[in-house]
Amino acid sequence: MKLNRIRRNPHSETIIALIDVVFFLLVFFMLIGRMDATAPFDVTPPLAVSGRDMPAGGATLSISRDGALALDGTEIAGSDLEAALSRALDRDANLRLRINAHKDAELRHVLPLVGMAEAIGIADVVLVVTPAAGPDAG
């Protein structure tokens, strides 16, 4: 007796819907994901109520709790920072410097860097903060 294998319909279930869903998810994660370089050490920005939305772009200077520095995710010595920022400023005259300091970093590690950035001509320096709900927030 000859047994015939049942022919399977190769497209019994449409996969177009699956592709649509996966594609939407892919675009969603591509759009909301941030591709910023992260610092090689732990940085927890301070909480602030009066912060504004942070625009994208610019260079990010991270400062750890003990004053270690990282420029755009790469650790850098304090003595090399001014030259690195000057080179970045040469490439982009409207450079925005984002200072992402740990909330427990002492200001002697932070404020001189703001002054140095201003001295070499960076006109847009911002401090990165984590938004906090105000005391009158519901």
Partner: peptide, 14 residues
């Protein structure tokens, strides 16, 4: 993807 919600405070402006 990282989902950091960050704000900024201007420190130096032209």
């Amino acid at each position: 993807s990282t989902y950091l919600d960050l704000d900024m405070i201007p420190a130096v402006r032209q």
